[in-house]
C-alpha cells in the first residue's frame, strides 16, 4: 500500500531521532496542549520576556522601594525644598519638601495596578459580551447591544464623577473597576462584528458538529482568533486608564491628596518640567517604561498566539489581475 511506503520512508527520517511514535509519546504531553505551545513561543521572543520581567521588577520596586527609602510619601523635609536628586533624597524633593522617590513609588503602586486591572478587565468584558452577543444572536444579542448603546450614550466622565464620592474612603480598586466598567463598549461592538463572521467559518461549524458546547467554542475557537485585536486593545487600555485616572484626579475625583498616583504627579510636575525636571521626569519615565513593557508583552503574546504573525498571503490575485488587465486594455 502507498501508506506503507510512506511510513517506511518516514521511519527512516524520524527513526534516527529516537524511534517510533510510541517512544515519542512522552514528548506528546508537552506537545499537544495549546497553552504550553503558546508559552514556549512566547518565551522565545526576547523582547516580550524583557517586558514581562521589567513589569515584575517595577512592581517589586514599587512595593520594596518605600521600605528602603528613608522618607514616607506624606512626610515633608523642611530642610530641603525643591532640591535636585541627592543621596538623602534619591529623586529630589518638591516645593514643600516631599520626597519625590517615595511619592513616585507610591504612585507607581497605584498606577500600575489601575492600568493593568482596567486594561485587562475592560478587554475581558468586551470580549465576553461581544462574543456572546455575536455567537448566540437573537434576543441575547439584542439585549447586550442595547446595554452597550446605553452605556455609550451615558457620559462616563460624569457618572464616575457623581459616583466617586460614594466610594470615598473605600479602596481605590473600586475606582479602577468603575473605570473599567466604562471602557469596554466600543471594543465589544467590534468583537461582536468579528464573531459574526467567525461563526460562519468552517472550523466553528466543525466544532459544533463535534458536539463542542457553545461556551467552549467561544473560549477555544472564537476568542483566540481575535487575540490580536484583544491584545492591542488591552495594551492601549492600560495607557488610557492611567491617563483617565489622571484626568479624574485633576478634577478632584479618583486618587486624592495626600495620596498620589503617577498621573497626579505628572500633572503637578509638568508645569515645572523644564526648570525642575526631577519633579516630572521620574514619574513620566516610569509611566513610559510601564506602558512600553506592556506593549512588548502584548506584541510577544500576539506573535505567540498568531501562527502567521510574520506572514502575508495573497489570495485575491486573480481578481486584481483581471481588473488591471481590463483597465490597461481599455486605456489604449
Amino acid at each position: 500500500m502507498t501508506l506503507g511506503v510512506r511510513e517506511a520512508k518516514r521511519a527512516g527520517t524520524t527513526g534516527a531521532g529516537g524511534g517510533g511514535p510510541v517512544d515519542a509519546a512522552p514528548d506528546g504531553l508537552r506537545a499537544s496542549t495549546r497553552g504550553r505551545l503558546v508559552l514556549r513561543r512566547f518565551l522565545r521572543s526576547r523582547s516580550a520576556v524583557f517586558g514581562l520581567v521589567t513589569i515584575a521588577a517595577l512592581y517589586v520596586l514599587a512595593f520594596v522601594g518605600p521600605l528602603l527609602a528613608p522618607w514616607d510619601h506624606t512626610q515633608q523635609d523642611y530642610s530641603a525644598f525643591l532640591r535636585p536628586p541627592s543621596t538623602s533624597h534619591w529623586f529630589g524633593t518638591t516645593q514643600i519638601g516631599e520626597d519625590v522617590f517615595a511619592q513616585t513609588m507610591r504612585g507607581l503602586q497605584k498606577s500600575l495596578t489601575i492600568g493593568l486591572l482596567v486594561g485587562l478587565l475592560s478587554t475581558l468584558v468586551a470580549a465576553v459580551v461581544g462574543a456572546v452577543a455575536g455567537y448566540f444572536g437573537g434576543w441575547v444579542d439584542r439585549v447586550l447591544m442595547w446595554l452597550v448603546d446605553l452605556l455609550l450614550v451615558l457620559p462616563s466622565f460624569l457618572v464616575v464623577a457623581i459616583a466617586s464620592p460614594a466610594f470615598r474612603g473605600h479602596s481605590w480598586v473600586l475606582f479602577a473597576l468603575l473605570l473599567a466598567a466604562f471602557g469596554w463598549m466600543l471594543t465589544a461592538r467590534i468583537v461582536r462584528g468579528m464573531t459574526l463572521t467567525l461563526r460562519e467559518r468552517e472550523f466553528v461549524r466543525a466544532a459544533r458538529f463535534m458536539g463542542q458546547p457553545s461556551w467552549h467554542i467561544i473560549a477555544r475557537h472564537i476568542l483566540p482568533n481575535m487575540a490580536s485585536l484583544l491584545i492591542i486593545d488591552a495594551t492601549l487600555n492600560v495607557g488610557t486608564a492611567v491617563l483617565a485616572e489622571t484626568g479624574l484626579s485633576y478634577f478632584g475625583f479618583g486618587v486624592q491628596p495626600p495620596d498620589v498616583s503617577l498621573g497626579t504627579l505628572i500633572a503637578s510636575g509638568s508645569r515645572s518640567a523644564l526648570t525642575f525636571p526631577w519633579l516630572f521626569l521620574f514619574a513620566g519615565g516610569f509611566l513610559t517604561l510601564a506602558v512600553l513593557c506592556v506593549n512588548l508583552v502584548g506584541d510577544g503574546l500576539r506573535a505567540a498566539i498568531d501562527p502567521s504573525a510574520a506572514r502575508g498571503t495573497a489570495r485575491v490575485r486573480g481578481a486584481r489581475r483581471a481588473r488591471r488587465f481590463l483597465r490597461r486594455a481599455g486605456a489604449a
Binding site: S32, T33, R34, F203, A207, G211, H216, R220, P224, P307
Partner: peptide
C-alpha cells in the same frame, strides 16, 4: 478553513476526544 488557524495540529486532533 475547517482547521482553527490558532490551534496546533495536536490540539485539533485531540479536540473531539476532549469534548
Amino acid at each position: 478553513a475547517s482547521l482553527d488557524p490558532r490551534m496546533p495540529v495536536g490540539a485539533a486532533v485531540a479536540e473531539p476526544m476532549e469534548v
